[in-house]
Amino acid sequence: MRRIDKDQRARIRLTLNGRALSAEAEPRMLLSDFLRHSLGATGTHVGCEHGVCGCCTVLIDGTAVRSCLTLAVQAEGRDVRTVESLAAADGTLNPLQRAFQNHHALQCGFCTPGILMSFTDYLARNPRPSEADIRDVLSGHLCRCTGYAGIVSALLEAAGYRQSSESGSKS
């Protein structure tokens, strides 16, 4: 196992959204800070830095984790995915993102990346969850704007319970 002294900066290598990247970091650096400030992936947000709010959720090897409770060194050699990976290269939103737009599931958008990443993981493992399951997973995230109703509707659409509603398709 690689050993790094606490005051020593070390090069950390990982795969971010399919691209091999590396940067220097102290062992104590949080993965959330590393992603945002060292690798420039600012889509991942930091809302509480104590693991409660869920804003900073990313995927490591396909599993949703709180990047504010993870050290950058723990992601060494791993496959990290963030919200930037969800849309197609031309900007086309994926079905989960589209569902969020259709159901007005975001207002300020700060908590949204974390919710999208949690459900990218969860829906991959559980393609047909019940509404109760969806609410249970969503309860790991805080949103202050929406009152959650639009988010639940969007997640039900993403889980295939609702036809893709283009109710607001005038724009």
Binding site: L86, L106, G109
Partner: peptide
Amino acid sequence: SFVGTPVRRKEDPALLSGRGRYADDL
């Protein structure tokens, strides 16, 4: 008229793609 109708938000594509420009991102 667009006023009075549920036009989907122009803000959303950027915010859903991690392309928001919040103060700490700039």
